[in-house]
Computed example of a mutant assay.
Amino acid sequence: MSLKRWLQSFAAARPAIHNRPGPVPTMLPPIDGTNPIHRLLDESGLPWREPRRLVEARGISKDPAYQRDAMLFADAARPEGFMQPWWARVFERYAPDMPMVCFNGLVWFADDAAINIHRAADFFAARLGPAVVGQQYNTLVCRWQAGTASLQLQSWPPAWQSPALTNAAYVRDPRLATACSVTLLTGFRLPLSPTEERWVADFRPIAEIRRFETAMSGELRETAPRETEVEYAREPGDYLATVQNQVGVPPDRAALILCTHQLFVVPVGDVVGFEVLRSLPAKGGGGSTLWVHCRTTCPGVAYKRLHVAEHDKPDGIGPLGQKLAAIFGKPCEISPYFDDV
Rank of each mutant, 00 (worst) to 15 (best):
P47I: 00
D69W: 00
A120H: 05
P85A: 05
Q135Y: 10
I209F: 11
I209P: 05
Q67A: 09
R198L: 11
V55I: 13
L140M: 15
G269S: 13
Q322F: 08
H307C: 12
A77L: 13
D112S: 12
F338N: 10
Q322G: 09
K304M: 13
P23C: 08
G318W: 07
V341A: 07
F73C: 02
R52K: 12
T166E: 14
F103N: 00
V272L: 09
P25V: 01
F124L: 08
Q244Y: 07
S9Q: 14
L151H: 04
A13H: 11
G287K: 11
V200L: 09
L240G: 03
H261C: 13
T289R: 14
V24D: 14
A169V: 10
P130W: 11
A76G: 06
E92N: 10
W108Q: 06
A16L: 14
V341D: 12
D42F: 07
R20W: 08
R39W: 05
S61M: 00
E235G: 05
V301A: 06
K330S: 08
V243S: 05
P79H: 03
T34P: 04
Q262K: 06
G286S: 07
A57Y: 03
A159Y: 07
V308P: 11
C142N: 04
R68K: 13
N167S: 12
V132P: 02
D339F: 10
V276G: 08
I117E: 03
W86S: 02
R127D: 07
